[in-house]
Amino acid sequence: MVQAEMVEAMEFPLLANQYGVHGVPHTTINDGKGNVIGAVPEEHLLAEIRRVVGG
């Protein structure tokens, strides 16, 4: 149910632009439905995932 992809932003600039990536790391959830900027603690990422998919 969970897939995670590291994307090298310089090699895929169109995708990075699509999600408004200005700094790294920048994590998008389900194609931009959620976003987390920075290397955040596990709970913080989880809170954003919850906001997007519920539960």
Binding site: M1, V2, Q3, A4, E5, M6, V7, E8, A9, M10, L15, A16, Y19, V21, V24, P25, H26, T27, T28, I29, N30, D31, E42, L46, I49, R50, V52, V53, G54, G55
Partner: peptide
């Protein structure tokens, strides 16, 4: 976190943008 992820009803797709 593990308990929550086990309860997921829809897929979660994370993309982490990085630079080298």
């Amino acid at each position: 976190t593990r308990d929550y992820l086990k309860s997921l009803k829809e897929p979660v797709y994370l993309q982490v943008f990085v630079t080298p």
